[in-house]
Design a protein around this nucleic acid. Structure first.
Length: 439
DNA sequence: TCTGGGGTCCTAGGACCC
DNA sequence: TCTGGGGTCCTAGGACCC
């Protein structure tokens, strides 16, 4: 048994470490031709730009911009657009998080490319220097550039990370430690930061805050907390306190139990018939069920939704959803497929051009933790044979790739599948796709 | 022609119960 | 004639994040 780690009481410093342009940086590690030129990584269906190299940002390409709108510009500057290669990014992320975790026993993995660390009882350490070391280590070990922000709360660490990446005073080192600045120095930087630079403040709230004359971080910091809570919400009130160094958001070292599992996709082409929609819904359901079993969970409820294309407002719009309770909580794909089909029958209408479909699994609980309903008529639980079959299918698909064995309900030709024409190899997880050196 | 996917939390309002 | 109030649960919608 390992000795549990008890953080010493008292004030702590939080660090936020995140990779610069993570998806693009992952691609560049294995393809030197991508260096020093504009590169974007596209969302599913090759739809939007979700990651941009510095050169692409300099061309004015924004986050989430549709690819078709920037395609010509990119070509004009010898730029490259890639489909997203999540297998590669997930594997690089795993390695990145392992390395970062070596710098503190208290780590929260916040997203695919971001991690918080907490340093408590480390007053004698030069954390800025530790940050520099971490950065050099990740660059050497993985080839990924990261930024490090340090502050008294998670929100301040995020803000420091922003300064580390963008402000000329810190950009060179890629590390910003707010803890070693005087209040006057901090105030100077905060007066130069727009309020939407703060973690948790998006477009809507930023517009409302500006109307009230709270345009910069320095303004927001001095706002009256009860007023903010009344006019916005308790979430924003906590943000204001965090900006003042009062820690309200704890480090979440273990991920909180999951509330839902979503599987959805836009179609590569428009779908109108029930049968094709049903194939797509079945395929999403099977994918969600695999995730469910992988995490040892059961679902009590499945939601099905379909939608027309919101970017074609001249066409008739329709985006219904249906909720179908499972008679007993299950992780059995067969049962989920049946329930999803019932839901789809309820909401399908002819005469619409559908662009997207998906399912959401809800009421999740660990297998074995579900209490039976004493008064409900007895239900046949998933048999041992069925459970074995599912386990074998999952195993085959894990080993030989997703979709090697699948349900006929998912269709064979699958004309609705997403476009994905610009994929790079899965360099680190697939023997057939290892990077090659030389000729 | 062409516009992502997967999450969380909070709030308001209605149904229902006692 | 006169028609409460508080609690809980659920859902939809809106905000945010990466």
């Amino acid at each position: 048994m390992t000795t549990p780690f008890f953080p010493p009481p008292g004030p702590a410093t939080f660090a936020l470490v995140d990779a610069n342009n993570f998806y693009v940086s992952c691609e560049r590690v294995f393809a030197p031709r991508l260096r020093d030129r504009p590169v974007v990584v596209l969302s599913n269906n090759d739809g939007c730009c979700v990651a941009r190299s510095e050169e692409a940002k300099a061309l004015g390409i924004t986050m989430g911009q549709p690819f078709f709108a920037v395609r010509a510009l990119l070509e004009q500057h010898q730029g490259v657009a890639l489909s997203s290669n999540y297998t590669l990014y997930a594997d690089m992320s795993r390695r990145l998080m392992t390395l970062i975790g070596q710098y503190s026993p208290e780590q929260e993995i916040y997203s695919i490319d971001e991690s918080f660390l907490r340093f408590s009882g480390c007053d004698h350490w030069d954390l800025t220097q530790r940050g520099r070391e971490l950065r050099a280590r990740v660059l050497q070990g993985l080839g990924l550039p990261v930024g490090v922000g340090l502050g008294a709360t998670k929100t301040l660490a995020k803000l420091a990370n922003r300064l580390a990446k963008q402000h000329p005073d810190f950009r060179g080192e890629g590390v910003c430690n707010l803890q070693e600045l005087t209040p006057a120095q901090q105030a100077g930087y905060f007066a130069g930061l727009a309020v939407e630079a703060v973690w948790g403040i998006g477009r809507q709230w930023s517009a409302r805050l500006q109307q009230q004359g709270l345009a910069t971080v320095a303004h927001l910091m001095r706002a009256d907390v009860p007023t903010i809570q009344r006019q916005f919400s308790v979430v924003l009130a906590k943000t204001v306190m965090e900006l003042n160094g009062i820690s309200c958001l704890p480090l979440e070292e273990a991920p909180p139990p999951r509330q839902q599992i979503i599987a959805s996709r836009s179609f590569g082409q428009v779908v109108t018939t029930f049968d094709l929609l049903s194939e797509a819904v079945a395929s999403h359901t099977a994918r969600a069920a695999v995730k469910l079993r992988k995490e040892g969970l059961q679902a009590g409820l499945i939601q099905v939704f379909i939608a027309t294309n919101p970017f074609k407002p001249e066409a008739p719009q329709y985006h219904p959803g249906a909720t179908v309770p499972l008679s007993i909580p299950t992780a059995d794909t067969t049962r989920l497929l049946r329930a999803a089909r019932v839901g789809l029958r309820h909401i399908y209408r002819e005469g619409y051009e559908y662009k997207k479909a998906g399912v959401i699994l809800l009421d999740l609980a660990p297998v074995g933790a579900v209490t039976g309903d004493l008064f409900a008529p007895p239900q046949r639980a998933t048999s041992a044979r069925q459970a074995q079959l599912l386990a074998v299918m999952d195993d085959i698909n894990r080993r030989w790739g997703r979709g090697t064995v699948r349900y006929l309900a998912e269709g064979l030709a699958q004309p609705w599948q997403m476009r994905r024409g610009r994929m790079t190899p899965r360099y680190t997880t697939c023997w057939d796709e290892l990077p090659q050196a030389g000729g």
